[in-house]
Design a protein around this nucleic acid. Structure first.
Lengths: 206, 206
DNA sequence: AAAATAAGTGAGTAATCACTCATTTAGATA
DNA sequence: TATCTAAATGAGTGATTACTCACTTATTTT
């Protein structure tokens, strides 16, 4: 009778919220938004199912709540690198920083890209939280490199799209085909991607 | 009483199968695998729900059936380009061909990448149907370029991963943020990606 | 200590969904 | 035309699920 007693630990509202968000990210990223059940999230968070709906009105609100904080957080780190002056050096720092962030939050990024296809809220969060600010940060660097004659005068958006593709796919590929992913460290990957993106596959002297 | 009469057109078994597969791809790619309902697929295919299960035992079998034919088809086109000799020229042809295929089957590729996260069957289909053969085709070209001294001796898998990232993301990005996608033609995009991948962003003479 | 407030609970609910099967229909065959 | 067969149908079913709400438990206030 007293078998299935939940031990009710005392936690602040904020701590409970975090427990739920943490569990939600795990369950969402393992099963997708539709494949995840609120019952399973509650189980993993160590709360009753009803508790979830005391903190988040709907399942969808829980999804956006999972994505938003990390999206915002992802911007803060950037400003520190602004001081670097050489366009090439700036890029290497920036790339390494981005890859680390994506490595640490691989679950979240995979979830974000999968669900962006189906939920306009997610697309808008990506646009306003990542793409927009990211462009604002990197466009001046790009223009400066062209003005200095260091970069080719390539169109900005397509170039950034290629860059994002390389960076994003690093994380996705590693998850989908771990046995095909030889690199041990993020640094190795960053060096390799930077070399390709800046100087290409073809040898300079050929 | 005779209001909701379905007009039963005479079709071969294969035609019905194709109708269902076509509708399934549409509904799956709009809502994701879990978000799609067999009722909606039946509606869009113009058949009764039960008919679906006469052609496919389960919903999941329908998913794999949607993905497989296109995966196989995607390989056939490749062999034709083998004749090209210059490594650079081969790459441009190959890339253009891949981008066209992805443009034509954008729904399918987006679905495939989203669902690969959650279904090992999809991952395996991707691996055996796309990645494996793709590697078998392009590895000799890559090695030859290095042997000729045209390419840098970069590691193969990470280089291909970057290439795939650029190519895949072209389609995904265009879907997620159409207003940010300036290119009108696949050719333009192919030229741009080829330039970046082969020669990089930095000017050769700088 | 009693009362009031806040947070948590989990059985219950209505809706949804993949899948079944007894029946109907269309076309081939005799 | 009558009979047979395979394909198609769609109402029905059991399982699942997001969400509710009457109630319990813990904390704060009086």
């Amino acid at each position: 009778m007293s078998e299935n007693q939940r031990v009710r630990t005392k936690k602040t509202v904020e701590e409970r919220r975090q427990d739920i968000l943490e569990a939600a990210l795990k369950v969402f990223s393992e099963n997708g938004y539709k494949g995840a059940t609120t019952a399973e999230i509650a189980r993993q968070a160590g709360v009753a199912e009803g508790t979830i709906f005391r903190h988040f009105a709907t399942k969808k609100e829980l999804l956006t709540a999972v994505l938003e904080p990390k999206i915002v957080e992802s911007l803060i780190v950037l400003d520190q690198e602004k001081r670097e002056s050489s366009p090439e050096e700036f890029f290497r720092c920036f790339l390494k920083n981005r890859l680390e962030l994506m490595q640490e939050n691989a679950d979240l990024f995979r979830l974000m890209f999968a669900e962006a296809q189906y939920h306009s809220e997610v697309r808008e969060a990506m646009f306003h939280g990542i793409l927009g600010p990211g462009i604002g940060l990197i466009k001046p660097w790009f223009d400066k490199g062209i003005a200095q004659g260091v970069f080719k005068p390539l169109p900005f958006i397509p170039t950034m799209r290629s860059f994002m593709g390389m960076a994003m796919f690093y994380g996705v590929f590693g998850f989908l085909f771990p046995n095909l992913s030889p690199e041990k460290t993020v640094d190795e990957a960053a060096d390799h991607i930077a070399e390709l993106f800046l100087h290409g596959l073809v040898r300079a002297d050929s």
